[in-house]
């Protein structure tokens, strides 16, 4: 059953802009991205929007719907009442390029700073053998579609632009945790997590977990375990002394230098 919905869409670029009102037809079963496309087709042909798979798997159509970070392709119109005004804005943590499209290069700069997966030197690709229970923790984090809504909602950078130089956000702390928990990885990433990626900025307010469209428990399963592993090394003298008396387990090497963000 179709109806006409009231939409407010932010339009503009890095020099300025504002929220504009639209009335758009809505059909049964549609999602917010369908309405944005109809808006492009009928009323605003120059409206800029980034999208690709329309299936919640490419992470392209991240925006803020009524103030909440959402994938537009996964936000059903049936979750709103017919008389509700729906406000769509670009993600507010990243520089805007135009309309709903933001420049997310901050995330790629931080991604390059994460030391790559480093299996043992004597283990050739194809010879990797791992028990399922050893890799399943890391596998949860591989569901990430890099929509960057977790980094968008994290107040440490959303409300503090200056922290972008020293804090990589939940997406890349999760990547570090993923590699640190990997059974074949030989790099100790704990120092890097503190010094280069600013894990200490995280104050566990769990907004990253709340907005994750893949329902990854970013805080509980990645960032807090990473913080605890760092506490093992940096803040736990008892554990440090005890580790001196342990037989030399699989030696972990220090993280190699990585390119730093230019921002």
């Amino acid at each position: 059953m179709g109806y006409t919905a009231k939409f407010k869409v932010w339009r503009g670029d890095d020099t300025g802009g504002g929220i504009e009102d639209f009335n758009v037809d809505v059909n049964e079963g549609e999602v917010v991205l369908d309405i944005i496309h109809r808006l492009q087709a009928t009323q605003a042909p120059d409206l800029a929007v980034r999208w690709n798979c329309k299936a919640g798997k490419c992470g392209s159509c991240s925006a803020e719907v009524n103030g909440k970070p959402r994938l537009m392709c996964m936000t059903r119109m049936s979750t709103f009442t017919e008389d509700e005004t729906i406000t769509i804005t670009p993600m507010r943590t990243f520089p805007v390029i135009r309309d709903l499209v933001t420049d997310v290069s901050y995330n790629y700069e931080k991604a390059r700073m994460v030391p790559a997966f480093a299996p043992p030197a004597d283990l050739a690709p194809g010879d990797y053998r791992m028990a399922q229970i050893d890799v399943e923790r890391s596998q949860e984090f591989r569901k990430c579609i890099e929509c960057f809504m977790c980094n968008n909602v994290c107040h440490a950078v959303r409300d503090h632009e200056e922290n972008k130089t020293t804090f990589s956000g939940p997406r890349f702390l999760m990547r570090i945790a993923e590699l640190d928990m990997h059974p074949l990885d030989t790099v100790d990433r704990r120092e890097v997590a503190v010094e280069d990626h600013g894990v200490g900025y995280c104050n566990i307010t769990k907004c990253c977990t709340e907005v994750c469209p893949e329902h990854i428990k970013i805080t509980d399963n990645a960032i807090i375990p990473l913080k605890e592993r760092i506490a093992d090394k940096k803040y736990d003298p008892i554990f440090s002394i005890a580790s001196l008396f342990k037989r030399n387990k699989q030696g972990r090497q220090a993280a190699p230098d990585t390119p730093h963000a230019t921002k």
Partner: peptide
């Protein structure tokens, strides 16, 4: 800090749990 997700916090500066006293949370 923040009051809720995607709601701006009222502080001009944020250093997280990297300095005293909040680093003691570790």
């Amino acid at each position: 800090s923040p009051p809720a997700c995607a709601v701006a916090e009222p502080h001009g500066k944020y250093t997280g749990e990297r300095r005293l006293p909040l680093i003691l949370n570790n």
